[in-house]
């Protein structure tokens, strides 16, 4: 079993579980963003109409729909990395059981990261599809956005795994969830342009990875002004978090 096949085998294990619980998987993956779209996109969007953001006049629905991509993949990747990872590592001891087979612990953790990222990509793809069908997104933009969305999924899954590795109990995952993930979701421009925040708020939001992701995504999907710093910032966040998460999880599993 070479490295790639081992990682793939771990990914397939997680996929098998997802497929067995497909109704649960579909509900948790798709229903939430669709509800948000209905409420904010169609409901609030009808009240607000068009807004000016990113140097463009766009419908609020299209603006929110692009924002929901970030929200969905943030929540899906983070939650699967944090809660799913904690359950698999701590309660089910799956990492320990697999890592005494020819699949090494390092490969188990790559498989885990890849799976959590894949779930983020899958859920974000649904929003892309809806946006494309509604005519709010350009199809070519949807295709080009996929690798960027995957990159962000890897980042948020890594953050989730790092949190899982550092949490003594499953309840303590709530701290980073409420103190980091939720504020990021609320203040990085999912529902409103960042220009609405006070300057200090804009300064903080500007360095956060969700802001960078939304900037790239809205440029590709809605034709917003290109912001050169966004993609490098996203990459800069992602690169250190992968080894951080893997090393922390390795230490926790082997402890």
């Amino acid at each position: 079993m070479n490295f790639y096949r081992s990682v793939w085998t771990v990914w397939l294990r997680h996929y098998s579980v997802f497929r067995k619980n497909i109704v649960y998987g579909m509900v948790t993956t798709f229903v939430e963003p669709i509800l948000y779209l209905g409420s904010f996109g169609f409901g609030l969007g009808a009240v607000i109409g068009n807004i000016e953001a990113g140097g463009e006049q766009v419908s609020y629905r299209a603006f929110v729909l692009a924002g929901l991509i970030g929200q969905t993949l943030l929540f899906t990747s983070f939650f699967d990395g944090a809660y799913g990872g904690f359950i698999r590592m701590y309660y089910q001891k799956i990492f320990q059981a697999i890592s005494v087979t020819p699949v090494t612990l390092s490969e188990v953790l790559w498989g885990e990261l890849l799976w959590c990222s894949s779930r983020g990509l899958l859920s974000a793809s649904v929003i892309l599809l809806i946006g494309g069908v509604l005519g709010d997104f350009s199809w070519w933009g949807c295709v080009v956005a996929l690798p960027v969305i995957f990159l962000a999924s890897v980042l948020f899954a890594s953050v989730g795994m790092l949190v899982a590795a550092g949490s003594r109990t499953i309840e303590s995952i709530s701290y980073p969830q409420y103190l980091v993930i939720f504020p990021m979701f609320l203040f990085c421009g999912v529902y409103f342009p960042l220009s609405q925040l006070p300057e200090w708020g804009q300064a903080i939001a500007a360095v956060l990875p969700l802001t960078a992701l939304l900037s790239v995504v809205r440029t590709l999907l809605l034709g917003f002004q290109f912001e050169w710093w966004a993609l490098p910032l996203l990459v800069a966040w992602t690169i250190p978090f992968i080894p951080l998460a893997r090393n922390a999880m390795r230490r926790r599993v082997v402890a």
């Binding site: 079993m1 294990r13 579980v17 067995k20 089910q92 320990q96 059981a97 697999i98 087979t101």
Partner: peptide, 19 residues
């Protein structure tokens, strides 16, 4: 460390895949 996500038979088959 049994895999509680699978049935008895499926987890045997699943575990074999790691070899």
């Amino acid at each position: 460390s049994l895999d509680t996500d699978f049935t008895v038979f499926d987890q045997m088959v699943q575990f074999a895949s790691f070899f």
